[in-house]
């Protein structure tokens, strides 16, 4: 048997990238901004969306795509506050891929929307690897998880366009060094804007939403 070597140089994520590119075209046509919320299970992503639903309603029309491994519980929470929502079940996978998101987007009334928020499957590692055609990945980190997470999961903080530090109301009760965490974030991604938010107490959401409005325009 003889063998022959062939040089290739081909992007491995190509099949995912094709769908992400289609999504970018669709979003540009409809002038819709899409963001991708990424954070560990229980970081407070759905609660952040609930808070945004209360405050954003008048300024920006938005819809939510809920990514979960199982159950429609998060989608039901969003529907309850009157925001259009579709549930995406990843079927066991630890992240969403571009094709599924693209099909789900087509089922939304994009003509009448300004913003689509995708809540990715709760996980700090895998979703950061996949482009779903979003304009911005947003890292969500709760103060209950520890201040060193930006150093332990640098890819997410490298790829993100903003970070939300959630559950700020818990700060007095947990050993979380806020200045250290901000320094770690800066060491990983010097330009990353950081928003301190408590969805429970409806605090700090304004700054994040102003940033979203600027991103939109």
């Amino acid at each position: 048997m003889t063998t022959k070597e062939i040089k290739i140089y081909r992007d491995l994520m190509g099949a995912n990238e094709v769908w992400a590119a289609k999504t970018r075209v669709l979003l540009a046509q409809k002038r819709v901004l899409m963001i991708n919320l990424i954070g560990s299970p229980g970081a407070g992503k759905t609660s952040l969306l609930e808070g945004m639903g209360v405050q954003l309603d008048k300024k920006m029309k938005f819809a939510v795509l809920e990514g979960d491994v199982e159950t429609t519980r998060d989608a039901e929470r969003i529907r309850e506050i009157g925001v259009p929502v579709s549930q995406l079940l990843s079927g066991g996978a630890c992240h969403l891929e571009a094709k599924l998101v693209h099909y789900a987007l087509q089922d939304l009334d994009l003509e009448h929307l300004d913003l689509v928020v995708v809540e990715n499957v709760g996980n700090m590692v895998c979703p950061a690897e996949f482009d779903i055609g979003e304009h911005a990945k947003i890292a969500v980190l709760s103060v209950a998880e520890g201040d060193d997470k930006p150093l332990k999961y640098p890819l997410l903080f490298q790829q993100a366009k903003a970070a939300v530090l959630s559950k700020m109301d818990l700060l007095p009760y947990v050993p979380f060094d806020l200045p250290a965490c901000r320094k770690y974030i800066q060491q990983v991604n010097a330009k990353l804007p950081v928003f301190e938010v408590s969805a429970l107490q409806q605090e700090g959401l304004g700054g994040f939403m102003r940033w979203l409005c600027e991103l939109k325009s």
Binding site: T3, R10, A190
Partner: peptide, 20 residues
């Protein structure tokens, strides 16, 4: 801080070896 990445995010097929 603020060093810009010039390598480290690659993910590609470089070569294959086939049986002929």
């Amino acid at each position: 801080p603020g060093v810009e990445l010039s390598a480290g995010k690659e993910l590609f097929i470089r070569k294959i070896e086939i049986k002929t």
